[in-house]
């Protein structure tokens, strides 16, 4: 859910707001939705990364990798096709960090019960959740 929301927010807001918009969105989503820090990071990362990769990938295909090959050359990457993923990684780090920070604030101001209220959180998405991360300070 959080991933989906962030994916949509990153895509739509990207055209309206500055590049750091996904950080704002992910912070808010991290505050509201996830139950664990790992899940927050994972959904923040995935939502933004997917949006950025998809958008870059579309532009790259339309451009027949012309520019991405030059950018790959510039940054010593082996292939232009990797550049959309690098783009996603950069977006993802920002989104993940923001969601995690949002979650931490929530955990401090209004800690949620560690047990699901409305059902199991499906947003962990198999992302690594280190033991130390999911301790909300309660």
């Amino acid at each position: 859910m959080a991933t989906l929301i962030l994916f949509a927010a990153s895509l739509l807001g990207g055209y309206l707001f500055p590049w750091w918009w996904p950080a704002v969105a992910a912070y808010a989503v991290g505050f509201w939705l996830p139950r664990r820090a790992g899940a927050a990071f994972a959904s923040g990362f995935a939502g933004t990364a997917l949006a950025w990769t998809a958008c870059a990938g579309f532009l790259d295909l339309r451009n027949h990798h012309l520019l991405s090959n030059r950018i790959a050359d510039l940054f010593h990457l082996p292939a232009g096709a990797l550049v959309p993923f690098l783009t996603g990684l950069i977006g993802g780090i920002m989104g993940g960090m923001a969601a995690w920070a949002g979650f931490a604030l929530r955990a401090y101001v209004k800690p949620r019960a560690p047990v699901a209220v409305t059902g199991p959180d499906s947003d962990t998405g198999g992302a690594p959740a280190a033991a130390g991360e999911d301790t909300a300070a309660v």
């Binding site: 990207g14 532009l59 012309l66 520019l67 977006g91």
Partner: peptide, 19 residues
């Protein structure tokens, strides 16, 4: 500036011209 340069909404991707 990495994110400003790479983000697909205002960075270099906008210079990837279509057909």
């Amino acid at each position: 500036p990495i994110a400003r340069f790479f983000n697909p909404f205002s960075g270099f991707w906008l210079n990837a011209e279509g057909d």
